[in-house]
């Protein structure tokens, strides 16, 4: 008998979609800022100006969204918990990691059936959160340079002296591409699980509900 389970609470869904919008806006404007390819004949234009305003605006939105999601790891349900993102801490988690890996590499017939994140995905998200953190720190370090006496410059000074401006800029750039790669993988895997698990994976990130058959668990 199929059960309807409330898996993704509203803060999880909300921060997910804020992240999606922010990452798209940040990647598009960021790639332009790194290599401005639009040809602008009018000197009165403000193309780079607007790109930077949008980039910085979404940078703040993205940072707040990431911080809220990290906090929710300590207040939310078991699927949102920080424990879910570290499956390697439990024996069961390890077997799910191996099982899911074997499924992806065509070595196993069925994917380990779980209600929340599958173990391999959760591990990937831990790494993605790390990338988010590096992106936020390197981004605000570079942003803070406009005012060396300001708040951001004083907060990020250790990173600038440790890594130099240009290394932070290169890192910020490369992680953008890694996150684009992740987004491709993420959408693909969500589609794959939606087809194979038949439990409403794709719709669950909109509504929060999944359809679980306890027999499979």
């Amino acid at each position: 008998m199929l059960q309807i389970r409330y898996v993704w609470e509203w803060p999880v869904r909300l921060t997910h979609w804020f992240n999606v919008i922010s990452i798209i806006a940040l990647a598009v404007t960021g790639i332009y800022i790194g290599n401005p390819i639009i040809s602008v004949p009018e000197t009165g234009s403000f193309v780079m100006g607007w790109m930077r305003v949008v980039h910085f605006g979404f940078a703040y939105l993205f940072s707040v969204s990431v911080i809220v999601r990290l906090l929710w790891m300590f207040f939310g349900n078991e699927y949102a918990s920080w424990r879910a993102f570290m499956p390697w801490l439990t024996k069961e988690g390890w077997s799910h990691i191996v099982g899911t890996f074997c499924y992806y590499t065509f070595l196993r017939r069925k994917v380990p059936y779980v209600v929340g994140h599958n173990a391999l995905a959760a591990m990937a998200y831990s790494f993605v959160f790390l990338l988010f953190a590096v992106q936020v720190i390197s981004g605000f370090s570079l942003y803070g340079q406009y005012d060396p006496n300001g708040l951001w410059a004083s907060v990020t000074a250790p990173f600038l002296s440790l890594f130099s401006n240009q290394v932070l800029r290169l890192t910020h750039h490369m992680i953008t591409w890694l996150l684009i790669g992740f987004a491709i993988h993420h959408v693909y895997s969500a589609w794959l699980m939606d087809v194979k698990e038949k439990n409403g994976t794709l719709s669950s990130i909109f509504g929060g509900y999944k359809f679980i058959d306890p027999k499979d668990l």
Partner: peptide, 14 residues
């Protein structure tokens, strides 16, 4: 360059 490698990563993923 970073962009060529990045584009390669994205294309390889796809």
């Amino acid at each position: 360059t970073a962009d060529k490698i990045g584009l390669g990563i994205a294309a390889a993923t796809a």
